[in-house]
Design a binder for these strands. Structure first.
Length: 602
DNA sequence: GTTACGATGATCAACCCG
DNA sequence: CGGGTTGATCATCGTAAC
């Protein structure tokens, strides 16, 4: 398979970057012409029409169901059934029971004696409606609005309008949704509202003359965490705009935070049900901070096929805490940890600190490793505060408290008499499970190393979850790694001994891409690494191209930006709709495309 | 590059009330 | 005693102004 012209082409790509920035010289040598032509034909038309609005609503109204939140609708439309038929089938069966929906659809299409293919939404059209570089325009608007505080609410509405229109909804629908739900509603709420309205409308048209239809079954039989449902348009009208969350039980974090199990602990979960729409292939693995604002994890879970998130604190894997939520459709049986097991306490990890560690500092593990470190001035203040009590056995309690508080806040360790210091970058690398000097060199500054590391996976934790893939893919896997950062997923798979056949790695930061490429070369990988800069560049055409080339992706990994979610952000903790964190929807978009393309080529 | 800078939500203990 | 409330305590893949 990997011989002949195709293989040749891969080799050509192997050592170039397809990043949009600063590769002008190299680009000329790349055989990308064919793809570029494709794009010229398909993309600009689609994205421009949707950005300048005219005629879009007519286009989309006919297909009736919007593309994003109505995943089930989408799923079946993607299979080639008409939107009307899908709406009808869902109305009849309820949306939980995909089996019977499919059955109804098959019956309906048989009745109409026209095979689904005739209603089949053309692949390219549906994809190109989907894509576009809308977030570029989005962020431009955003930065403009930052200068004028008074203009903010207006442009916020504009942003959401544009986002919704780019997702494929009509301008009218988007406007109605924003008006109904309020300008501060999340994209998820807005899309839910639109799709509820669409389904309701479609059903009215189709089924208005059938008074004795069976009621949708099984809407209450779903599990606690499987709360996704659609609202009747009428029901929506009566409700106040923001009460969507109220009856939707917010996901609670488990205590202890061990997810579906960690090594050497009793497994709290022996079996879990994965919704049918979520089943692999491909397998997917999504990560973000556990302590996100309320409702964020509900939204993430709802988009990712109603899979229950697994919340795990990495303190069960290494000497530092890292509370994260993972949404994945991997089996949870027979997981195994990476060996050797990393140290679980600070003393084991940094034996030299033991000598200076005062007895009144009772920490045994570190807090979450962040992107910033404590300042030199702070460690100096601590030293001076302690030196005042040098002769005594221990400083007074208020000094102890000050020192401990700062040590906890900044993850300081004892490196000398009265002397604390932040961790060195290589120490952070070790704690996170990366090889020493993983982020070193290649023109990266110390600050950037901390930043890249602070944004990364904890390798042992992720590897434990991914370990089940080893037996399933003895020949290796094809990996699509979004927001891959310094390559946490790649390193985890490699350390598990799972060969990496083809890896498409997407990250906006050039230094991160360099780190991954450098690691790739250092570890003598036999496979192919392709790096892209921007998840928004990854459109249907390009995905299709890669999937044809590789025979599909086995695993789609991604941890989308958390900076608008984390509590340590005082300025722009805007939730999932924040400027960066909104890229979560791109993870969903791409994952859904991968699933669609895989289903089609089956 | 360095040093400033809180707010949100989770957890826990104490408390109240019926 | 159980459930709910209140308040103290703590942690947080960060950003803005120098």
């Amino acid at each position: 398979m990997f011989e002949g012209p195709i293989y040749h082409q891969i080799i050509v790509h192997q050592n170039i970057r397809m990043a949009g920035d600063n590769c002008g010289v190299e680009v000329d040598n790349i055989d990308w012409d064919t793809e570029d032509e494709l794009e010229i034909e398909n993309i600009p038309l689609a994205s421009h029409t949707s950005l300048t609005f005219p005629g879009v609503e007519a286009n989309m109204a006919s297909s009736s169901a919007g593309p994003s939140n109505t995943k089930i609708v989408d799923h079946f439309i993607g299979m080639g059934f008409s939107a009307k038929m899908v709406a009808k089938a869902i109305k009849e069966n309820g949306e939980e029971n995909t089996d019977s929906i499919l059955e109804t659809l098959l019956t309906l299409s048989a009745l109409e004696s026209s095979p689904p293919k005739q209603q089949h939404v053309d692949t390219d059209d549906s994809f190109s409606d989907y894509e576009g570089s809308f977030l570029d325009d989005f962020s431009d608007l955003d930065s403009d609005s930052e200068n004028e505080a008074t203009a903010k609410p207006v442009s916020d509405v504009d942003n959401k309008m544009m986002f919704l229109v780019d997702m494929g909804y009509s301008e009218d629908e988007a406007y109605a949704a924003i008006e109904r739900c309020g300008a501060h509603s999340s994209i998820a709420e807005l899309t839910d509202f639109i799709s509820a309205a669409q389904i309701s409308k479609a059903a009215d048209v189709l089924l208005g003359d059938l008074p004795d239809r069976p009621k949708p079954k099984n809407l209450n039989g779903c599990s606690k965490l499987n709360k996704r449902r659609h609202y009747d348009y009428e029901a929506w009208k009566k409700k106040k705009p923001r009460c969507f969350d109220d009856d939707d039980e917010t996901i609670r974090l488990p205590n202890p935070m061990i997810g579906f199990g960690v090594p050497n602990e009793l497994c709290p979960t022996l079996h879990r049900k994965i919704p049918e729409a979520a089943m692999g292939p491909p397998y997917f693995y999504y990560e973000n901070v556990a302590l996100a604002p309320k409702g964020v994890w509900n939204t993430i879970s709802r988009f990712l096929y109603d899979v229950e998130p697994e919340f795990v604190d990495s303190k069960y894997f290494c000497a530092a805490a890292r509370k994260r939520g993972y949404v994945h459709n991997l089996p949870i049986h027979n997981r195994f940890p990476l060996l050797p097991l990393p140290p679980h306490t600070v003393h084991e990890a940094f034996p030299l600190t033991r000598k200076w560690w005062p007895s009144w500092d009772t920490r045994t593990q570190l807090n979450c490793l962040q992107t910033c470190i404590g300042s030199a001035r702070l460690t100096d203040r601590i030293r001076k505060a302690l030196e005042d009590y040098d002769g005594e056995r221990a400083p007074p309690l208020h000094v102890q408290k000050f020192v401990i508080d700062q040590c906890r806040k900044w993850n300081l360790v004892w490196v000398g008499k009265n002397k604390v210091a932040p961790l060195e970058p290589d120490e952070v690398e070790m704690l996170l499970g990366f090889p020493k000097n993983h982020t070193r060199g290649g023109g990266i500054s110390r600050t950037d190393r901390y930043k890249s590391l602070g944004n990364s996976f904890q390798v042992d934790t992720v590897a434990y979850h991914l370990s089940v893939l080893k037996d399933m893919f003895p020949g290796g896997i094809n990996l699509l790694s979004l927001f891959s950062g310094i390559g946490g997923a790649e390193v985890a798979l490699h350390r598990l001994g799972i060969p990496l056949k083809n890896v498409v790695s997407v990250d906006i930061s050039e230094v991160n891409r360099n780190i991954v490429r450098s690691w790739w070369e250092q570890t003598n990988q036999k496979g192919t690494l392709i790096d892209l800069a921007d998840v928004q560049e990854l459109d249907a055409d390009r995905l299709q191209y890669f999937m044809n080339l590789f025979g599909g992706f086995d695993l789609v990994v991604g941890g989308s930006p958390c900076n608008n979610l984390t509590g340590s952000n005082r300025y722009t903790r805007d939730g999932l709709e924040g400027k960066e964190s909104i890229l979560f929807y791109d993870y969903f978009r791409i994952l859904d495309l991968v699933k669609c393309i895989a289903t089609k080529t089956e």
